[in-house]
Design a binder for these strands. Structure first.
Length: 937
RNA sequence: GAGAGUGUAGCUCAGUUGGUUUAGAGCAUUACCUUGACAGGGUAGGGGUCGGGGGUUCGAAUCCCUCCACUCUCACCA
């Protein structure tokens, strides 16, 4: 069978995924092997695959495939979450486009639409993951709102409530007026935005009491005014008119009027600064600092809220910052968390002037029904007209927006359900601090601890319909929590008697936060809230792979849930991936349009190419600057391996050893590659342990490209038109096979294809189900010798290039006779290998310097290359001098160490010995170089 | 404001408890080669006083101090 000239990723990928599925390689059932389980971070059920998913899931697939090759029982559970806010928003938008308002529908009708939507778009993302090669156990696909998961969510709520770790409370919450629901702190994104600080003056209410000083000034002004008037020139032009006297009275009057204005302002007005003038209608106090001398005289006074004329107390509270703004603060307890606290301290009235949809309500008295931002402009204009707007100061401040809808979050006072986090956080914190749960990279431990130390209660109710409806029923002002309405009824009857019926109970309208389902994921996917069954085998899961951006939203909460219900950790390792960024380091975003289409990438470069591209630039936990060029490199790599396959498969095989020399060369090459393979396996092993996957990827890339294709195959490649012996051929196939298994986790498709092309395979023999090779012993001396011969080959090639000789033109070479040279070339096949790879006509031992040669040193051996052209003596001298200088400098640094007694005494013997070897080598090398130089002179 | 992290070649990054050459890789770049697996190739080369300064040590990219630059997280003063 003839192999295609180029590797075709599309054909291959279309072939192998269905094959793996058919063979059920992804499916896992508990058995006596060690379990390796991973749960997918559930994407939104209606989401589409983006770069973040690709990175995250490629990593999980690599870990799962590696575990499978290591003989573990690998189980990767896929699934999606219902994404309460996002999905409901999408459904509402779709209905609106059809002219249907959510408010016109019953809860049941709306949910019907939502499920239709979910069925239509749901799970698309999971199909896209298959394109990437994700080897999930699809039979286990879970959804946060399916029956199994829902049952556990409800049970957990009831359990927490009964344990007193869940409560309903009135709090200032983050309200999203667009989605019309509350958000947890973690769902609010803060960012600096330009706005204004409005300086507004409030009239002070003195309760009719007059200022004596002002009254005195007023009288004075009146008097002076009269005087000024009397000094007016007479109309007939003959009256008394002393200009200088007149002017002095005029000045006096101006001064008095100014003084009056100032005193009057200070006495009658108080200026505050605010970002939100539209909330003044909810003001119930003005606060100043108790130690502020500017306002000390206002004790016990009241102020009048502009536009609506409400009289509010002027209060004194430490919270106020004297330095900021005017040092006076309007207090609006309904619309600011800090103001609410002040309100509690001073028993202030709470006047909520903003409706759930962000418009002003009737309590605002003015501009009712106008949106809060429109109202801001209207109120500003009103204040300006009324003379209350003193100044407008440009100001940058942090604004919180909803993560899902982008709407500016409105602080709002409301009754919500909370999890008492302090009661459940402790074991989850300890686990991470003691590395029972290990974070990769470690630095996230700090972030985690900081959040856990300052943990706040978790608001879990959402004013939505799409989600798990809260299992709480109300009757007669009391709440009854149970898994079913019947349970709740029983509780109600215990309290109020049997006359209470199901119809009397009213279930809480709200649903639970989506994260309240996902925090159970590591065991809920195994239906494992209760012990027994599969959960005992798969839980705790082996590793969680996720982005650091959801460390609080998800990771920390899963840890808490794990300890709360399973009594132990949910995962042993957490590997945090970085964010995918564009080559300029910017976040991928829809608005920037810098996010490549994930499926298009797979289309263009193949899943293997994309996987390689993502992994090669993905430092453990660091952000990755994604460039499609890397995928190109991945695709090229697939082709490179394909070409190597074509090479080997193109060889004619001889059942007889071809020549003795070639047999020795091939055996030597095989021994070397085997040793190198062991080295790579050891490195790869430790890199996998530390999740340094980009290093695993690059090590294999370099090894296959360089050592395998560049050296090994070139060495064993038979001369043009000649066959290769059977043993060497089989050996090459075996190496190739091992390499495919090693690379399989990273590039599953191309490796599976080549693995099958290498040999005839029986049914059930597949790369995905093969065994990961194990490292053998490493002979360091041998490897060093092989490096020397490679170095010699390179140096001869360099000489060819410098002297413009063809790479295949045979050269006569000599090696300086020495004991070490003899030993070196006694290694079977070494001489023949050198001759073949450097295209030598001859290699002869010599004691004299042969005529017409240039020389070089490799290791400690001196080589001569005969050139049939005049040697540029000056150039040679320069080259040797340069090398001599370097070696001398090197020797000096080594000598320095060795002549230092403290080094010799304190450093480990191994280090000292190594330095002595370096010294000896350098001395020998210098001698050789100097000799050459002398001869040239 | 509090905390954390980063700074090594043109770019992206390794450098695994301080000692394997006077610091490595990939990409990019330069020169040359290339009818025989592969131009998505081969061979060879150039390129870094490891952010600056100081200290500890026989020895520092690595540990400590300090300064500079950038990034992130949390909390926010109206």
């Amino acid at each position: 069978m003839k192999l295609a000239a180029r590797y075709n990723s599309k054909e291959t990928e279309a072939k192998w995924y269905p094959h793996w599925m058919e063979k059920k390689y992804f499916a896992s059932k508990p058995d006596d092997r060690e379990a390796f389980s991973v749960v997918i971070p559930p994407p939104n059920v209606t989401g589409v695959l983006h770069m973040g998913h690709m990175l995250n899931n490629t990593i999980q697939d690599i870990l799962i495939r590696k575990a499978r090759l290591d003989g573990k029982n690998a189980c990767w559970v896929p699934g999606t979450d219902h994404a309460s806010i996002a999905t409901e928003a999408k459904v509402v938008r779709k209905l609106r486009a059809q002219g249907i308002k959510k408010g016109d529908l019953s809860r049941e009708e709306f949910l019907k639409h939502a499920w239709d939507w979910t069925d239509e778009y749901g799970g698309k993302i999971l199909l896209q993951l298959r394109k990437l090669g994700a080897s999930c156990d699809w039979d286990r696909t879970a959804f946060t709102m399916d029956d199994t998961r829902s049952k556990q969510v409800i049970q957990v709520f009831v359990d927490l409530y009964n344990k007193g770790k869940l409560y309903r409370g009135l709090r200032m919450v983050n309200w999203d007026p667009e989605a019309q629901t509350v958000l947890s702190n973690e769902e609010v994104i803060h960012g600096d935005e330009d706005s204004f600080l409005y300086h507004l003056r409030y009239k002070i209410d003195h309760g009719g009491e007059e200022s004596l000083e002002l009254a005195r000034l007023a009288r004075q002004i009146k008097q002076v005014k009269r005087t000024v008037a009397s000094y007016k020139p007479l109309s007939n032009g003959r009256g008394v008119y002393n200009k200088s006297t007149y002017n002095s009275f005029r000045n006096q009057l101006a001064k008095l009027e100014k003084e009056y204005a100032e005193k009057e302002a200070a006495y009658n007005w108080l200026t505050i600064a605010t970002k939100r003038p539209e909330t003044i209608m909810g003001d119930t106090a003005i606060a100043v600092h108790p130690d502020d001398p500017r306002y000390a005289h206002l004790k016990g006074k009241r102020a009048i809220v502009p536009l609506i004329g409400r009289s509010v107390p002027i209060i004194f509270d430490d919270y106020v910052d004297m330095e900021f703004g005017t040092g006076a603060l309007k207090v609006t307890p309904a619309h600011d968390p800090n103001d609410y606290e002040i309100g509690l301290r001073h028993k202030l009235e709470v006047i909520d002037t903003i409706a759930d949809n962000g418009t002003l309500n009737e309590k605002a008295q003015i501009h009712i029904g106008k949106d809060r931002f429109e109202a801001r402009d209207l109120v500003k204009a009103d204040l300006e007209a009324a003379g209350n707007l003193v100044r407008l100061e440009p100001y940058q401040s942090s604004i919180g927006r909803s993560e899902r809808t982008g709407a500016v979050v409105e602080p709002k006072l409301s009754l919500q359900w909370y999890v008492d986090m302090k009661q459940i956080a402790a074991p989850a914190l300890d686990a991470v601090m003691t590395d029972e749960i290990e974070f990769f990279p470690k630095k996230y431990k700090n972030t985690y601890r900081h959040w856990m130390d300052n943990i706040r209660d978790w608001c879990i109710s959402r004013q939505l319909w799409w989600g798990h409806q809260i299992p709480a029923w109300y009757y007669n002002g009391e709440v009854f929590v149970g898994t079913t309405a019947a349970d709740a009824l029983k509780l109600a009857q215990e309290k109020f008697g049997n006359q209470v019926t199901l119809a009397d109970l009213k279930q809480d309208e709200d649903v639970l936060d989506t994260w309240f389902s996902s925090w159970l994921w590591p065991f809920s996917v195994f239906d494992g809230l209760e012990a027994g069954g599969e959960v005992d085998y798969y839980y705790p899961t082996s590793v969680l792979v996720t982005g650091w951006d959801i460390i609080f939203l998800w990771v920390a909460r899963m840890a808490m849930a794990g300890y709360e219900w399973k009594g132990t950790l949910p995962f042993k390792h957490v590997y945090f991936t970085g964010m995918v960024r564009d080559p300029q380091g910017r976040k991928m975003s829809k608005s920037l349009g810098n996010s490549p289409d994930a499926l298009k990438l797979i289309e263009d470069y193949g899943a293997d190419g994309v996987r390689f591209g993502m992994m090669s630039c993905s430092p453990a936990g660091g952000d990755l600057l994604f460039d499609t060029k890397l995928c190109e490199q991945g695709a090229a790599f697939s082709n490179k391996m394909w070409q190597a396959l074509r090479l080997i498969k193109g060889w004619e095989i001889s059942e007889q050893p071809v020549t003795e020399d070639l047999g020795k060369v091939n055996a030597l090459a095989a021994k070397w590659l085997d040793q190198r393979l062991s080295q790579i396996l050891l490195e790869t092993d430790s890199n996998f342990t530390e999740y340094r996957l980009s290093e695993v990827t690059m090590d294999l890339y370099k090894f296959i490209f360089g050592d395998f294709c560049g050296w090994y195959l070139e060495i064993i490649k038979p001369p043009y038109g000649s066959p290769i012996d059977r043993a060497s051929y089989n050996q090459a196939i075996e190496f190739f096979e091992q390499l495919m298994t090693m690379l399989h986790p990273i590039m599953p498709f191309v490796t599976e294809e080549i693995w099958h092309q290498l040999k005839e395979r029986k049914d059930g023999e597949d790369c995905i189900a093969s065994q990961y090779p194990k490292a053998g012993n490493i002979d360091a001396v041998f490897l060093k010798n092989f490096e020397t011969v490679k170095d010699t080959i390179s140096k001869i090639r360099e000489i060819r290039q410098k002297n413009q000789l063809k790479s295949y033109e045979p050269l006569k070479t000599f090696v300086q006779a020495s004991e070490s040279a003899t030993t070196f070339f006694e290694i079977a096949g070494m001489k023949e290998l050198l001759q073949k790879m450097a295209a030598l006509e001859s290699l002869t031992f010599t004691t004299e310097e042969p005529a017409n040669t240039v020389n070089f040193i490799s290791g400690t051996e001196k080589f001569y290359v005969e050139l049939n052209l005049t040697i540029d003596v000056e150039a040679e001298k320069e080259r040797i001098t340069k090398e001599l200088e370097y070696t001398k400098g090197f020797l000096i640094s080594v000598d320095k160490k060795l002549s230092n007694e403290r080094f010799v005494n304190n450093a480990p013997a191994k280090v000292v010995e190594n330095e002595r070897n370096k010294q000896a080598d350098a001395v020998a090398k210098i001698a050789i170089l100097e000799e050459s130089l002398t001869k040239l002179n």
